[in-house]
Nucleic acid binder design. Structure first.
Lengths: 87, 87
DNA sequence: CTGTATTTGTTCGTATGTATT
DNA sequence: AAATACATACGAACAAATACA
């Protein structure tokens, strides 16, 4: 398959699906496909802003969604990690 | 004219011009007027925060602007120097 | 060699303002 | 009115490199 035109990893600002949900979908897919290892760090907010060309609010909304789903947990000033929050 | 009340060196938080751009304007003016010598060190981020009463983000954004303009270059853990980046 | 201080780098937390849908 | 989105702004915490006494 061609790499170009693969919409799976690309934000579509014209979609009816909010950008933050599209971003959450992309990250969720990457996490579940094992693209990141368990306890690996998710790219930082800044990195995601740059990679996907969206605002910080949007990145934070997407991460909050994944956090609510139990897919990641965030440690203040450290980063967001893959996996359920340890007890 | 009096030095006091010269708005050229003062941040106006109520301006439509973002604070980081105002700060960049002030520093750019000082650099171009020869207030600092070539290869002198710009005041540290901490010093600029204190001098102008702004946040560190703002200082870093202003410096990044000057860096993009080629007016200064930053050496990690050393400081930001006046002049184009040496090769 | 060993601390201590300084400085930039990086990260998330929070808030406000504005614009668009 | 409410949700979404982006830019700006300040804060806090810690890391890492450097310099120096």
């Amino acid at each position: 398959m061609s790499v170009v035109g693969n919409a799976a990893n690309v934000i579509n600002p014209y979609s009816h699906v909010p950008v933050y949900r599209q971003l959450a979908d992309i990250l969720r897919q990457q996490i579940q496909s094992g693209e990141f290892g368990h306890l690996d760090v998710l790219p930082s907010e800044k990195a995601l802003v740059q990679t996907y060309g969206v605002g910080r609010d949007t990145v934070r909304s997407a991460i909050a969604l994944l956090r609510d789903e139990g897919l990641v947990f965030t440690v203040p000033h450290r980063g967001t990690y893959i996996g359920p929050r340890p007890e």
